[in-house]
Design a binder for these strands. Sequence first.
RNA 1: GCUCGGAUGGUGGAAUUGGUAGACACGUUGGACUUAAAAUCCAAUGAUCAGCAACGGUCGUGCGGGUUCAAGUCCCGCUCCGAGUACCA
Length: 1191
Amino acid sequence: MSYHFNEIEEKWQKYWAKNQTFKASNSSEKEKFYVLDMFPYPSGAGLHVGHPLGYIASDIYARYKRHKGFNVLHPQGYDSFGLPAEQYAIQTGQHPALTTEENIKRYREQLDQIGFSFDWSREVRTSDPNYYKWTQWIFIQLFDSWYDVEADKARPVADLEELFSSEGNANVKAVCDEDVQSFSAAQWNSFSSEEKQHILLKYRLTYLAETEVNWCPQLGTVLANDEIVNGVSERGGYPVVRKKMTQWSMRISAYAERLRADLDKIDWSESLKESQRNWIGKSVGAMVKFPILNNPSSHPQPFPEGREQNSLTSKEVQETPEKSPGYLTGNPNISGELLNRAKEMRKNPTAEEEILWQRLRSKKLDVKFRRQHPIDNYIVDFVCLSKKLIVEIDGEIHKFKKEADDQRQLKLEAKLGYRVLRFTNEEVLRDVKEVSRKIIEVLDSLSAGEGRGEDDIQKETKSISVFTTRPDTIFGVTFMTLAPEHELVAQITTPEQKADVEAYVQASAKRSERERMADVKTISGVFTGAYAEHPFTKEPVPIWIGDYVLAGYGTGAVMAVPCGDQRDYDFAKHFNIPIKNIFQDVDISEEAFAGKEGTVIADSDFLSGLEYKEALKRVILELERTGQGKGKTNYRLRDAVFSRQRYWGEPFPVYYVNGLPQMIAKEHLPLRLPDVEKYLPTEEGEPPLGRAKDWFWNTKTNEVVAPPSNNEEEDHIFPLELNTMPGWAGSSWYWFRYMDAHNENEFVSEDAQKYWENVDLYIGGSEHATGHLLYSRFWTKFLYDRKLVNVEEPFKKLINQGMILGESAFIKRIGFRLAQNHGEKMSSDEKESYRILQEKYEIIKNIYFSSDIVDAIKSPTSNPETEEERANATLRDEILLPFIQKVQAEIKDCGLEGKAIVPSIFPLITYRSHVPVQFVNGNKLDTDKLKIEDNQYFHAEFIRNSDRDFLVSREVEKMSKSKYNVVNPDEICKQYGADTLRMYEMFLGPLEQAKPWNTAGITGVHSFLKKLWKLYHSPSNSQEGGEREFSLLEAPASAESRKTLHKTIKKVTEDIETFSFNTSVSTFMICVNELTSQKCNSREILEPLLILIAPYAPHIAEEIWEKLGHKESISTAPFPVFEEKYLVESTKLYPVSFNGKMRFTIELPLDMDKDQIEKAVMEDERTIKQLEGRTPKKVIIVPGKIVNLVG
RNA sequence: GCUCGGAUGGUGGAAUUGGUAGACACGUUGGACUUAAAAUCCAAUGAUCAGCAACGGUCGUGCGGGUUCAAGUCCCGCUCCGAGUACCA
């Protein structure tokens, strides 16, 4: 009876499915255990051998826990919204849902044949409306919440409204937008509903805001920071630019401190926690204000109280109060009416208006224009609010209403400070380019500080706020640096410096982020001519701009302390700015001193003589007392942008009334994705959902409907949100859904969640360290705050499995470079022929060279000396001469003789390209098979070294379809079986370590399983060959076998608990080898052994288990218990060392004491021989361990 | 630059609180079985020196030091590789 793994595995996979062996119950007497894998995105390429690594590890653990008597939840599902399906849809028109469905089917087949113990009855798919209904619902909960800083948790918005109406917002400490104005209860109560909604939006945990986002033009969408790698998109590697857009954001910054602090509560790897800490980026320090000097009217003012921020932007300068919200510029008394009119006018623009609008909205302008926008009592054609520029087009009617228009212009200009530009219809029609050029010209002049916009008003109270982690070094400040993008730059620059500053600002604006990162070394900057006042010494401090200061971090401005910060130091040296040393006994002549602890501050007024920590405390106290600053903790973590301009994602359950977002009620969810004809953005640049025919919300019928026609009543039909949610929306809560996957009334029932709590063991790749894992923790904490779940962390223990790398194979081609013969002129025809020839031979196409040939001929040897060098030279002539002759012949044919030459073939140009690894065995390429199976190579010629094989070169790379190095688990399963695949993947090495896939060792694991099978089938003392019958003895086992078994139980149990799966495979091998040589045939030994192996190789275990006479699956058989008594030894083989070098071993009873051991060792003839008559100076004896004689 | 990992035979990798370095497997070599191949089984296998022989000698865990009776393991100083992150004030 031999081991037919294919039959066995199919049989048991069917059995498990039919009997629902691994279905977890939500009510059980047993203790629960939740083992989770990061669910996969079902890509078109299917699984490769790297994917199952983590699944196998978690499956072993889950099966082990079942044997240990736990009620195990081990579910699986699909993260099925995502970009690839959408891009495939764009290319082919195939609906992403169909592609996704097909891919899932394939994934499922592949997963099933590996024999995982998943409870598939709980499967979730993020793209399933029954699932994303609840993603939408959670979004609504976030919208309906604000963060109370005092209670340090999220609370319902209703509570906030209550607070506002009873006491205003002065005492409300909330995490909110920075531009919130204070209002009293009476003011709040007098606000219109729309105004209230505007204000509340600034407090909600998910909110609409115009944010600068990472825009990827090629993908047509925004990307989160963690989706960008080295300045290009993670998917596709396309460039990413900064762009302002109105987007949904998640106020994750409210949770920054809790997300950081609670890392201490979870069992994750230190490196992973560290990257989360870095991402959150806490720095403790102070905000300090520096008044700007050339405006004598400025006075330091205390920081506004009563609001709390966790992040800072460049807006954190003293701002004049702005009417809230900024873009509601219409007269509030008639705002509703104006808005409706404006909306109507927007729908029916004149041809001229439309033409100009297409120009003004163009992405080339850095500013945003609004069209048909209400200002005061008027609706203006176009307005740029930030620059206070109005553009109007005078149509026919205006000619007859000149007086009224003039009055209107006067009011807008004089009273409200707008600049009004007017063009006629003809001007626009005739030359829209010229019109927009004029507008840009005016815009530019406004930005240079000559405008009459908001900037003028700000000038009155100017000061620069900086964030610093070292306020204790404030007396070392010798200059300040602003980011070139800092908004005060234009205002403070003196006329003398204006040209330089503007040139610098423009130059750095042109440099992409990437360039700026690339040359960190270059120091650049310009003096603005302005000075700020030092808060304590009151001395003037020069203000510079420099691009080493980032606009996006802190306030976009720094107080430069050259003695304490290397960048400031370098900057000061470069521009000859004085450096003041404020550290006692520290030499800063060579570089800055960044040390903290133990540093004593000197030459610093009231800080002199204080140690770092004391100085820090003292200076913050002083800053706060004088109102010139305050202690401040700053986080790098930004709010997360939550809108994507994509089709294949969750639709927001949002419609807009007068531009204000409204949530669709829970009972009408899910809001399903509409069908569209194409998956591209619209011509107007709207997201793909803009193409949906029916994408309006009818608040009467609560249905998705077609847009209202012009003559229809439209007060109950509103446009729906066109963006969709990002990929991480659905994955930020899915583990809760598994607990109660079919619940139609709740995202998870309270009972189910209380029973399963959270994930006990989570296994997945480390690439999600700062994305998925951070967002999931954020949502969990939010749900906890709102009492929707009772756990604060989603994943108790987390293990990152290392990546399995592919071993790519390369085949090589060669090429020649032509050269022009000096002194010979070519006609243009000849030049063309030359170019064609050059192109042809730069790479010699379709001819491939064995890797050993390329190595041999790659470099020339002028005087071949060794045998090898001579052989190479011969080979070189043999291979290269025909090609050179061919090229020369062609030069002749083209009539280029004498003009173009093959100058030198060295260094030989070689090219390599990936070749599919399935045609490669070791380094040998099966060229015949390649030719037949890959069209690309059908006419290719493969040149090999005489009778040798055609060789490729190999290199370890990430496994990917484009690198042709993907190894498919299906083939392994077919050839060796799933049990072998499972054990081999574990045997490769430590789980968390990255390792290249190499099938070389798989036969070892496979033959182990065959040996295991034989162990149960070969009768003891049987000498006969051929088919063996199954037989076991019921008689007691030998002491030796018991020892082997219990040794194995001990080791394997420890290994599973510590996730050292690779060593337990070795342990099994040792065990089976030992039992085989012991000819063990006893049920007492072999039955427990089977349970030990079952988590690793479940199919073979089930099969033999059944043969042993069991009717039930092995999956819940109790795990064998280790018993010390079988391992107790009476003797120990002592290693005996001389001066620490092991010389021989001696077997002695374990109960011997030190003296007895010493006596026995000293009497041994080998000891006498080693000592050669000397007496050891010292004898070290550790009973049970070692003997060491020191001479 | 910073943070976190890592470096052990021809290869993947073992090695408890410091206590016989190289488990287990691959590969290689030799042998058995076979008409042959596959499969299976047996033996050898860190390097090196010596030898008729062996419980022979020496050197060996990236490099240089140190602590210790004893160091792959602990300490100090480096080198290289990998991952993450980056003018973060």
